[in-house]
Amino acid sequence: MRLRIDLAYDGTDFRGWAAQPGLRTVQGELTAALATVLRVPADDVAVTCAGRTDSGVHARGQVAHVDLAPALAEQHAERLDLLARRLNGVLERDVRVRAVTPAPDGFDARFAALWRRYAYRIVDDPARVDPLTRHHVLAWPRRLDETAMAHAAATLIGLHDFAAFCKQREGATTVRTLLDFDWIRGDDGVLVGHVQADAFCHSMVRALVGCMIAIGEGRLPVEWAAQVLTARERDPRVVVVPAHGLTLEEVAYPEDDELAARVEQTSARRAPLPTEPQEGP
């Protein structure tokens, strides 16, 4: 029996999602809690998530799955609400299980996802810096032009090789489909970048935000973002911003009868794109 687990966490005191020996991680904490509540060895619990957040990154809408052996499945199938409560009783308060539900056939938290949506929050007015939000909003010392940032962000939407914004990993593709990228300033003065894509590679969102900040400060023109993209190599002027301003907000999945096809599609390695014209999209 496969279970879907919806959870949220404050990433401040975590060294990211992925379990690492001797370090506190979200996967490690959730695995240990499941092992305790289910009364099984931790080695028998394999938790897979939709997005492996980096150290310090938060989540409101993380999704994971875990498989239960038949005997455990029968024991807990009708009381999954109780299982969620017991997990929260074991976990520290900076990670909360919001729901535990039976996963439909073909569900895979990672490969069945249609898209992930992140938000990056910045306050660029010293008078509006709130110490109570310091762990999830980046305080920036100079005023940013959200209109210029929104225009630059729009030039990156679509299917591209985002190698210029990713930390390279051997054998991994950097081709992604950026579905939405926009910047909006709220009534509280906080500037929020909304980034949605089919998937993200390592440090991609934080590098995209760093690029937008350079444009928002007026140091570089709007057109520079597309130039960085088409160059397909890291530009030293693109700064990877701190992790604490970033939150995984939502993960979307297809209808149940489309899950298996989606898993098959996304499990296949993305082919490299042909060389794109240097004038940008």
Rank of each mutant, 00 (worst) to 15 (best):
A163T: 13
T247S: 14
E233R: 15
G218C: 13
C211V: 02
T230K: 06
A164W: 09
G216R: 03
E223T: 07
A243I: 01
V175C: 04
A163P: 03
P221L: 05
Y253L: 05
R206N: 02
D235L: 02
A214F: 09
G186I: 01
A207S: 15
R234M: 06
V238E: 11
A226L: 02
R234L: 13
A231Y: 01
D235P: 05
V190K: 00
V192A: 04
D182G: 06
M204Q: 10
G186H: 05
S203D: 15
Y253M: 07
E217L: 15
C166P: 01
V251M: 03
E217M: 13
V222D: 02
R237C: 06
F162I: 02
V239K: 10
P236L: 01
F200G: 10
I215Q: 11
A243G: 00
Y253D: 11
F181V: 03
L229A: 04
L220I: 09
K167P: 05
M204Y: 10
L246S: 12
P236W: 00
D188R: 06
D235Y: 06
P242G: 11
R219H: 15
P236V: 04
V228R: 09
L208G: 04
C166T: 05
P221A: 02
Q196H: 13
V228T: 04
V190R: 01
A243C: 04
R176H: 14
H202F: 06
L191F: 10
R219Q: 15
V251E: 09
P254L: 08
L220Q: 12
A243Y: 13
V205P: 15
A199K: 07
R232K: 09
L229M: 10
P242D: 15
E223R: 05
V192Q: 08
D188P: 08
G189T: 02
A231M: 01
T230C: 12
A207I: 00
L246Q: 07
G189H: 05
A199E: 11
C211A: 12
W224E: 05
E217S: 11
V222F: 12
Q168W: 08
